[in-house]
Amino acid sequence: MQTSVNTIIFDLGAVLIDWNPRHLYRKIFSSEEEMEIFLRDICTSDWNEVQDEGRTLEAGTSLLVNQFPHHEENIRAYYGRWQEMLGGEIEGTKNILRQLKESGQYKLYALTNWSDETFPVAWELYPSLHWFDGIVVSGREKLRKPAAAFYELLLNRYQVNAANALFIDDNARNVKAAREFGIDSILFENPYQLKIELENRSINI
């Protein structure tokens, strides 16, 4: 059956760009256990996502330093050494994105939970980010996934029909929200799995 998809929307972190705080904190902590406790209890994903929604890096850092002064150096490393969390482009996804771009059949967008203060670093480093027809960055918009308004913002800004769109994200929460909004979605695991999922929708690359 021929697909009706004409627009493909990518998440960025852990889908196209290998961002992971463990790339940095493995250099700082002497054991995986110490590192995981720190990321679970102090510099948590929930805390980081508030910066992704527009809180300044300075405000977020100060909040934790006040709460956990004995961890100040490690807390300040989170954004002070943020670039060390970047592991490069995920080559398999980059190749898929390139083939989709070269096919000329699809509009390509990114919808990302990312701080407006750190996104320009990735923008300068990674050419694949420039292949999109548009990127919506949560930190700029003061909105983030899984809020329905964030998906709606992209659809409205670029005149995208949800019924003709496909969304790709590694976070099950964000995929669920997109599906509830009426956007067919793929829960990303790895580039090989993504290629199969695309072929199952008659998107051949």
Rank of each mutant, 00 (worst) to 15 (best):
N113T: 11
N174V: 10
Q51H: 03
L111N: 14
L187D: 07
I203C: 09
A149C: 13
E49I: 06
T118Y: 08
L143N: 14
G88Y: 02
P120T: 11
D11L: 03
G182K: 08
K27A: 03
L155T: 15
A14P: 00
N156G: 12
V50A: 02
Y158Q: 04
R173W: 07
G134K: 01
N161L: 06
W131F: 10
G182L: 06
S185E: 07
I203K: 14
L24R: 02
A177N: 12
R98K: 13
N204T: 15
S30G: 06
T3V: 00
E58A: 15
K145S: 06
F188T: 08
V160R: 02
N74P: 00
F68A: 13
Y79C: 07
S31P: 03
E32L: 08
W47H: 09
V50Y: 00
R55P: 02
L187S: 11
Q99C: 08
N95A: 04
T112S: 15
D116W: 10
Q2I: 00
T56E: 02
T7N: 14
L57Q: 01
E124V: 14
R201F: 01
E73N: 15
N156P: 01
S31M: 07
I135N: 03
A14K: 15
N20E: 09
R144C: 00
H71T: 00
Q159K: 15
E141A: 11
N156M: 02
S128A: 04
R157T: 15
M35Y: 07
N164I: 00
G54M: 12
Q67H: 12
A162Y: 05
G92Y: 03
L198P: 04
E84A: 07
I96L: 10
R98D: 00
E72H: 08
G139W: 09
Y106S: 11
F10S: 10
E34F: 01
M35Q: 10
V121S: 05
I17S: 01
E89S: 12
I9E: 01
A77S: 08
E53M: 14
G80R: 10
V175K: 06
V50H: 00
I8R: 09
H130Q: 13
E89Q: 06
R26W: 05
N6E: 10
M35P: 08
S103G: 15
R76L: 05
L155Q: 14
L24Q: 02
W82M: 01
W47M: 11
L12D: 04
V175T: 13
I96K: 10
I183T: 05
A149L: 13
V50L: 08
L24F: 05
L187V: 03
I135Y: 12
H130N: 03
Q2M: 04
R144Y: 05
G139R: 01
S138I: 08
S115V: 12
V136S: 08
P21S: 05
S4I: 01
I186H: 10
E72Q: 15
R144Q: 13
W123R: 13
S128T: 04
R81P: 12
N95D: 03
F132H: 04
V121T: 06
I186W: 08
V121M: 12
E199M: 06
S115M: 09
Q99I: 02
E73H: 15
F181C: 08
Y158E: 04
P21Y: 10
